[in-house]
């Protein structure tokens, strides 16, 4: 049953990924990517990582992809590739390079990963408990954890600053109009 679930989910993930880069419409791309993220979340669950499963859902699916959709809709940037390609020779070359990269990555994956099933047993049962992850976060990885906090803070400030300037410019252009209340999450 594990194999059935895996292949099903993997197929969905692959289909979502391919469809994402093929889709002409950016909203469709976002939806296919969402599908892919959902599939990967399920794979996390299969890998005994329920915490990451929920994180994947709430951060990637719930926040990041919503942001993407939001920006696409706000900008009306669903289809920007209608114009003629300025670098027509780039695409085939990119495909060749992609193929090369794929071959390298797969060789590495086959050589690096073990073909046996991962270990089971009592240790495997306890594995993936959010408590153990949390403990590691606050002991061994305390410093990186704090740094990610600072990164988030910096990101928040950066976004606010970027927005702020735009709002000011708008206000100057059309005096009297109230700058639209930010919809920045």
């Amino acid at each position: 049953m594990d194999f059935v679930l895996f292949f099903l989910t993997a197929a969905i993930a692959l289909a979502g990924a391919i469809a994402m880069i093929v889709a002409r419409n950016a909203v469709h791309s976002a939806l296919f990517l969402l599908l892919n993220f959902g599939a990967i979340a399920v794979l996390f669950l299969l890998l005994q990582s329920p915490f990451l499963f929920t994180i994947q859902l709430s951060i990637y699916a719930g926040a990041i992809m919503v942001l993407f959709l939001f920006v696409v809709m706000l900008l009306g940037a669903e289809q920007v590739e209608a114009a003629q390609d300025k670098l027509p020779w780039q695409q085939p070359l990119a495909l060749v390079m992609g193929a090369g990269l794929l071959v390298i990555a797969m060789i590495t994956a086959v050589r690096g990963g073990s073909n046996d099933a991962p270990p089971g047993g009592e240790a495997a049962e306890a594995f993936g408990d959010p408590a153990s992850l949390g403990e590691l976060l606050f002991t061994k990885y305390l410093l990186p954890f704090q740094i990610t906090g600072i990164i988030l803070l910096v990101a928040v400030i950066g976004v606010v600053v970027l927005n702020q300037q735009r709002n000011q410019a708008q206000t100057e252009e059309t005096p009297g109009e109230r700058p639209s209340s930010s919809v920045q999450p």
Partner: peptide
């Protein structure tokens, strides 16, 4: 130096592929 990001990304990728093949 065309300014096209895709161009730079492609060159970057070519470099990555070459280096990785070498390491492999």
């Amino acid at each position: 130096q065309s300014g096209y990001v895709r161009m730079y990304a492609l060159v970057f990728t070519i470099g990555v592929v070459l280096v990785l093949s070498f390491m492999l």
